[in-house]
């Protein structure tokens, strides 16, 4: 047994390890399941080198095992995963970055903001604000302008960006399914199917919107990262990350959540049976049906309002 003083892991590895645990938990993965590096790298939008570092940390904490021919596999139960996550040291700049992002999506801070303003708002050091902003920058969520202020990327919180998002997804998502190298991550597809089927068993009126959004994003990420085309996978992964942010415009009925999940299952079935053209067409139908549908007429006697 080594008597060396333990080395404190890097904060970005801790943060990534937490993210990996979130993904593993959300997928309902079980002891013995394999964790493909490429899939997790795509999901987190980071390099495979970083993923390996985070896997290594999880191995040191007894969450994963590694074998030459097999790679990393899960050895902790779902209950132990939660305990492990609680035991990880907090990555403070990550918490601040999350708070800044949350406040931006709630329009509590403006689209363009200075470091000084954030320092005052959160009562923290300039260095901590800078670290948090750099973290958001690495996720392509903010950029630094010529005037040294920081500008948030356009989020999916207004009618124009939502419309453009749909137009983009109508092109990219069917293309991902039809890409030459498309190969469905079978194990993750099976796990996701189970989660969706479990969601559909909840009595009518009890559908959880947050859980739906999480599973919906998982589904679309699964197909993007199965495309075998790195450019499609990267651009769709970045885009779906925007969809995971808190969004004041999302509100779905119980019926539509169930209907959308039925469509997800149908697309998976089509892919599994080799009907890629039909699955790509079905994806288009699914995306069109998933548009936020709200009345464009607001009062008796008045004409439509396109807003």
């Amino acid at each position: 047994m080594s008597s060396e003083k333990p080395v404190r892991p890097k904060s970005n590895h801790i943060e990534l390890a937490k993210k990996l645990i979130d993904i593993v938990s959300a997928k309902g993965m079980s002891v013995g399941d394999r964790l493909p590096e490429k899939y997790f790298a795509d999901q987190c939008g980071v390099s495979r080198t970083l993923i390996r570092s985070a896997f290594k940390l999880l191995k040191e904490r007894g969450v994963l095992d590694w074998k030459e021919e097999v790679g990393y596999t899960l050895i902790a139960s779902s209950h132990d995963l939660l305990d492990f996550q609680d035991g990880l040291p907090a990555a403070s700049e990550s918490a601040l970055a999350d708070q800044i992002l949350l406040d931006r999506t709630a329009r509590r801070i403006a689209q363009s903001v200075s470091v000084s303003a954030l320092t005052r708002r959160y009562n923290v050091t300039r260095q901590r604000v800078l670290s948090a902003l750099q973290k958001l920058q690495s996720d392509d969520l903010v950029s630094q302008s010529a005037s040294q202020s920081w500008v948030f990327q356009t989020l999916l919180d207004n009618a124009d960006s939502i419309k453009e998002s749909l137009e983009y997804r109508l092109v990219a998502e069917p293309a991902a399914i039809l890409a030459n190298g498309f190969k469905l991550h079978q194990q993750l597809a099976v796990s996701l199917r189970k989660q969706i089927e479990s969601f559909l068993k909840v009595p009518v009126g009890g559908a959880d919107l947050q859980l739906f959004i999480q599973q919906d994003v998982e589904f679309h990420l699964l197909l993007a990262t199965s495309s075998g085309n790195r450019f499609l996978a990267d651009s769709l992964t970045n885009h779906h990350r925007l969809r995971q942010l808190p969004n004041a415009r999302i509100s779905l009925t119980d019926f539509r959540m169930r209907q959308a999940h039925m469509e997800h299952l149908e697309i998976l079935t089509m892919i599994e049976s080799g009907q890629f053209d039909a699955a790509a067409d079905m994806m288009k139908v699914h995306l069109r049906l998933s548009q936020s549908l709200r009345p464009s007429t607001v009062n008796r006697g008045s004409p439509p309002l396109f807003k």
Partner: peptide, 21 residues
């Protein structure tokens, strides 16, 4: 309603949305 983008500097005790159930 459809005017979310007209708001900024929203106070911490206020949450805005375009539509709610």
């Amino acid at each position: 309603g459809g005017f979310l983008e007209n708001y900024d500097n929203v106070p911490d005790n206020v949450f805005l949305g375009a539509w709610f159930a």
